Computed example of a mutant assay.
Amino acid sequence: MKILILKRDKLGDMLLTTPMFALLRQHFPGARIDVLANTYNAWVIDGNTDVSRVCSYQRVKEGGRIHWRAAFAQLRQTLALRAEEYDWVIVANGDASHRAIKRAAWLGGCNLVSYTDAKNTHRKVNHPLEIPRQIHEARRMANLLTPLGITLPEVLPPLRFHLPAEAQTFATQWLAEQGLAPGGYLTLGLGARRAKKQPTTEQIIRWTRHFHEAWGLKTVFMWTPGKSDNPMYPGDDETAQPVLDAKLPWLVPFRGPLKPALGLIFNGRTSLFPDSGLMHFAAASPGGVLGFFAETDVSPAPAQWGPVGPRARWLEAPKAVSQLEDAAVFAELESLLK
């Protein structure tokens, strides 16, 4: 059996699809399971033994520019994949996406599985599924396997992520330079695009002081580099600056790219993050994560996007993370430190 999974989403979304890959491999151990991803998210499943092959493509339009070479490369790739004559092609989107469905239809295949709705479908989708509501995104991905005769278990397989070697190399060197030992610190990060979903400067100061005084742990404080008004990749430099201005002796700042940040997260004792891709990666780390959610009547709710795993916790505030009680944060963290 040959199966092709189309996954075009963000990094955290790709990570939440790994339980789906594991279920496929469990039920079809001899199958060829290929994934078609873009160059932005494909590295998330490097080393994943549930996947036979990862095919990646560059986006044609990036940063407002059109890359014609990428367009021709995609055409050649599509023709090559069509020639594979897959038994199943699965559009791994949590919602119905006309663009993703159209791309999958071009890939051919005997059976095409996708979530659809009245506006987003295609005549070649011969296994349309209604979009399930009120379930977690990881389970929503796994639900796409039901046309293949797979009954979902009550508990899905865990997230699977292999820390890149360069991320571990960076972490080892950086921690030595900072005088920190693996497991001897917490990681606290910013990264949510809405201010209400981030802890305030005052909270960060109080929390990190408690981590140091009560548990003897310093905090590696990280944030998304860049200005908040960047339309493509908004950063948190302005939000982080007041924390840096406090010059806390127990706080070690890190402003850098994603993979080095992952190295620090995976070497820490545990982590705290607002709802973001880094929160999901931290959930897959040995130390786990405490995630923060707020204003879920208009923002993603933890029921669908909460961190998953045996060492994943989350707290939800009515309107803003600033409403969370310190005692609640410390209690959840203590359970992760045990």
Rank of each mutant, 00 (worst) to 15 (best):
T17S: 15
W68R: 08
D236Y: 07
D34S: 12
L156N: 07
N230F: 05
T200P: 01
A100Y: 01
R69I: 00
N120K: 15
L79D: 04
S285E: 04
A282R: 01
L79P: 01
Y86N: 08
T146I: 14
E137M: 15
M14A: 12
A22Y: 01
G63V: 06
N126D: 14
M14L: 14
G263C: 09
L278I: 01
G226T: 09
P286S: 11
L11G: 00
A181T: 15
A246S: 11
E137H: 09
D236L: 06
T146F: 05
P286E: 10
R8T: 13
T172R: 10
V35M: 04
S285N: 06
I204T: 14
L188G: 09
F211C: 15
G149L: 11
L16Q: 13
D50R: 04
G263L: 10
E213P: 01
G149F: 09
F273D: 02
R99I: 13
L107P: 11
S56W: 06
L16I: 02
L290C: 10
P307F: 05
F170Q: 01
I204R: 04
C110M: 12
I45Q: 04
R269Y: 06
F211V: 06
S97G: 12
L244P: 04
T18K: 00
T172Q: 13
A192S: 15
A31N: 09
E332P: 00
T49H: 12
